[in-house]
């Protein structure tokens, strides 16, 4: 027999906000604001899960970003009328998202441990140096900072490419994202290109994040560093998203579905 537990005042308040969010019309400002406030409030949860995976060769910030997708999915699916607390409901979704990230992003070829570690150090030092310098650091500056040779930095950059092995035919995950969730202003129709029609279905099928990065880089002409700051990931992550997305689009143009 289970002992009924008295919900904490905080849990009751969270539950109440879930009720309000679900009652608000889809696409309304109120719903969006409640969703965001719930997400912000539970970011610590994502961070706690991300920390558990910190020894696996990804920066914690990037994992938090990945886990946040899981958090948003959990927020959209949580039913406040059912017993469990939101945090216990969300945890498996968040860690599932991070685990999937590791499943999809593995080293495609064997890369020496030394380079894997250097790539990780490079990712975080690039961000620090960028803030100090107010611009993207050069290879020489990074090499001096990390006490390695310029060739090592270049080698680690090349090695980073081996870390993008998302199968091109991987099913694109669209669940949890509704049309209302789509980020505004991503009109890739602005790309005045001849093959726009062939690209349209592929662009539509891209995950929101990748379409957003594409838009910021090619429509708004922002630098990789600016995009990294805007969406809250490392510049190397932006570079990888771009490389992967461009490869997907190229593939689609060569072999129309």
């Amino acid at each position: 027999m289970s002992i009924p537990r008295q919900p904490t005042p905080e849990a009751a308040e969270v539950r109440e906000r879930f009720r309000l969010m679900r009652a608000a019309p889809p696409g309304s400002d109120q719903r969006r604001e409640l969703r965001e406030s719930l997400a912000t409030q539970h970011l610590g949860l994502v961070r706690a899960v991300a920390l558990r995976f910190r020894d696996r060769g990804e920066s914690v910030d990037d994992l938090v970003q990945v886990g946040s997708v899981g958090l948003l999915k959990a927020i959209d699916r949580f039913d406040p009328e059912h017993g469990a607390a939101f945090s216990s409901f969300a945890l498996p979704t968040i860690s599932g998202e991070i685990k999937r990230h590791f499943r999809d992003h593995t080293w495609a070829v064997r890369v020496p441990r030394r380079l894997q570690e250097l790539r990780l150090a490079l990712t975080s030092r690039t961000e620090d140096l960028r803030q100090q310098l107010g611009r993207s650091p050069t290879v020489a500056e990074l090499a001096a900072d990390l006490s390695v040779g310029s060739e090592d930095v270049l080698e680690a950059l090349e090695a980073a490419d081996a870390y993008t092995a998302v199968p091109l035919d991987a099913p694109i995950d669209t669940d949890g994202a509704t049309a209302a969730d789509r980020l505004g202003g991503l009109d890739l129709g602005l790309l005045r290109v001849e093959d726009r029609e062939a690209l349209a279905p592929v662009l539509d099928a891209l995950p929101d994040r990748e379409r957003q990065v594409l838009h910021l880089r090619f429509v708004e002409n922002r630098t990789q560093s600016e995009i990294a700051t805007e969406i809250g990931v490392s510049q190397m992550h932006v570079s990888r998203i771009l490389a992967r997305t461009l490869a997907t689009l190229r593939q689609a143009l060569v072999q129309p579905a």
């Binding site: 993207s136 050069t138 290879v139 270049l154 630098t223 990789q224 560093s225 510049q235 190397m236």
Partner: peptide, 19 residues
Amino acid sequence: SRAGFGLDQIEDLRLAVDE
């Protein structure tokens, strides 16, 4: 890198070569 480009620009160039 020899020419003193920033990492941003190096990554952009690498993408350009791919394309």
